[in-house]
Design a protein around this nucleic acid. Structure first.
Length: 557
RNA sequence: GCCUUCGUAGCUCAAUGGAUAGAGCAUCUCACUCCUAACGAGACGAUGUAGGUUCGAUUCCUUCCGAAGGCACCA
């Protein structure tokens, strides 16, 4: 439809004598009263053609009327020179026929592509906090939105299982004489204890630094030639890592996400170090004050250390290793990495360095980020211990949902729906101010509002005795016209990697549906079969939309 | 100091350079014998500042004010 409009406008413009290409848009009017499509070509071409926008618009109106024939019920000039097009009841019904199919909203823009998405990325030896929760929820939704483009999506999470934070946790465990940690909580507490000690005691700091190096050495040797001390250290390290992973998987299950790959720093570090050392010979990296740096300042970026003067690799060197590690194991056409916005600067430097070493690998990588999640108490910092843990927050919101839902399965669906929606409703990039008391709304602009609208619609379909059947008896309601926009909304969300596009649309859709529900009798009405068919398309649209966000769809509420 | 991002209603968020800047919460009305009131109808209320580009600017450019993040051995 959009293509037909575009074609007709272009033809008409060149007939009017437009020599240069006129850039215009075919868009949805924000106000549905203005129709299904709006064309701003008359405004854009006004200067070139030397006519007023309204003169041109009137010519376009005639051209579009004849081009669209019976598919348009109304073509009119409005405002400063827009041409608004309203679809006819029949044209609308034809589009709605697709809307009760399961694949409603999918497109084939990236058919056959293999896309790897990295997100969540909690570090073993720390507990998962709400920052990771953000990444998990956003990453999963972006993955699902990408799947709707026909791409084969692979998911991975990357975690730091070596480095100073691990040394802090292991140091504290050893201090307490714990050799058999039993819960992830114990590991998390040890990290906090170790982090405090590191800042408060010179002795502890020295010991932890030494332990950090010792762990790198031990991990590097793996099974070959390890001493007794190293064997004990490695054993404690593996136990801690396993415990943390196990607790991550429990959370992923509740959130409806699962990963194809878990990558660890210990695996990618050797490759990273090797590549960076090679890079020194090639002149990409430089030695400075005993460290290996990438001189980003020469390119308007920051200069960052890749290998410290103690010989340990930093985050950046490990990321180089990770990029190579993935490339060796997984065939991909694109790699997307989702992290917190505080890493934007680092990612730019890393990407600049990588593009000098492996241009093709760097070219297919892209970085998306989420803003900081700030509490009323300020930025979260896990080393200070004043963090809200992912598990605590999930438990709390499910508990709140259970006040109204005795069924624990539904309570969980509603709780997760509220949490997920709260995170996905706003555009990525900005920070989310999170007040645990107020932010988890269960009514209004919320996940449960969407779920509730769906549950009500499903009940109607269950209770009805007639078979849903689309026909031109269906009046062209705002609800029907809004449903036809869904595939376009999905495309826009794909272009922007923006789940919030879907979220905003679904709220509008649910609101329109609830209004329809309140004002129109469905069961027992004259056009029951046609209205039931509309209900069916609403259900399919809402279901697919909720799936794209990762919000569960309860049958009843 | 330099770099990046962001300032929209009392609060939390929308608005692919377009039409009367949309929602929700809060506040105040109305509606509730009817398919689930986690609902519906209405009122109230906003683009930080000063310029520029444009037929048209919340959106692009510049000034100032304010906030957040980053800036060589953390991740």
């Amino acid at each position: 439809m959009e293509d037909r409009i575009r074609q007709a406008v272009n033809d008409s413009l060149s007939q009017m004598g437009a020599k240069e290409h006129v850039s215009f848009v075919v868009e949805w009017p924000a106000d549905m009263a203005n129709g299904d499509f709006a064309v701003n070509a008359a405004l854009a071409a006004s200067k070139q053609l030397g006519k007023t926008p309204r003169e041109i618009a009137e010519v376009l109106q005639t051209a579009l009327s004849s081009a669209l024939g019976e598919d348009a019920s109304r073509v009119e000039v409005a405002g400063p020179g827009f041409v608004n097009i309203t679809l006819s009841a029949n044209a609308l019904v034809e589009i709605l026929r697709d809307a009760s199919e399961e694949d409603w909203g999918k497109n084939t823009q990236q058919n056959g592509k293999r896309i790897l998405i990295e997100y969540s990325c909690p570090n073993p030896f720390k507990e998962m906090h709400i920052g990771h929760l953000l990444s998990t929820i956003i990453g999963e939704s972006v993955a699902r939105i990408t799947e709707y483009s026909g791409a084969h999506v692979l998911r991975d999470s990357y975690g730091g299982d070596v480095g100073p934070h691990v040394a802090k946790a292991l140091w504290a465990l050893k201090e307490k004489g714990i050799t058999e940690p039993e819960s992830s909580r114990e590991i998390g507490d040890a990290y906090i204890h170790g982090a405090h000690a590191y800042e408060e005691s010179e002795k502890a700091k020295a010991e932890i630094d030494a332990l950090n190096v010792a762990l790198y050495v031990a991990v590097g040797k793996d099974q070959v030639g390890v001493s007794e001390d190293e064997r004990g250290l490695l054993e404690l390290w593996r136990k801690g890592r396993d415990l943390a992973l196990e607790s991550f998987r429990e959370i992923y299950k509740i959130l409806g996400t699962s990963f194809d790959y878990f990558f660890f720093e210990s695996e990618v570090t050797p490759i990273g170090v090797e590549v960076v050392r090679d890079g020194v010979a090639k002149g990409v990296f430089e030695e400075s004050e005993g460290a290996v740096i990438y001189p980003g300042e020469k390119k308007g970026l920051h200069t960052l250390v890749f290998i410290t003067s103690r010989g340990t690799p930093t985050y950046e060197a490990k990321d180089i290793g990770l990029a190579f590690y993935k490339e060796e194991r997984i065939e991909t056409d694109a790699v997307i990495i989702e992290t917190g916005a505080e890493q934007i600067g680092h990612f730019k430097v890393f990407l600049a360095a990588l593009s000098e070493i492996a241009p093709l690998v760097a070219a297919k990588m892209s970085h998306i980020s989420h803003g900081l999640l700030t509490l009323t108490t300020g930025k979260m910092a896990s080393r200070k211990g004043n963090v809200i843990m992912a598990r605590e927050l999930i438990t709390e919101i499910i508990e709140r949902a259970s006040e109204r839902n005795p069924d624990p399965v539904i309570a969980q669906q509603v709780g997760i729906g509220a949490l997920t929606y709260m995170i996905l409703r706003s555009a990525p990039g900005g920070s989310i101010v999170f007040d645990p008391e107020k932010s988890l709304a269960l009514d209004g602009d919320s996940g449960p509002y969407l779920q509730y609208s769906l549950a009500r619609a499903k009940t109607i379909l269950e209770k009805a005795e007639q078979t849903p059947e689309l026909s031109s008896a269906l009046p062209p309601s705002t609800l029907a016209r809004l449903i036809t926009r869904f595939p376009g909304i999905v495309k826009k969300a794909q272009e922007l990697s923006g789940p919030h596009i879907i979220a905003t649309y679904l709220i509008q859709l649910a609101s329109e549906w609830n209004s329809f529900y309140a004002n129109e009798r469905i069961i027992g009405s004259e056009d029951e079969a046609a209205k039931l068919a509309l209900v069916q398309t609403f259900i399919q649209t809402m279901q697919n939309g909720l799936w794209l966000l990762g919000i569960p769809a309860p049958e009843r509420m």
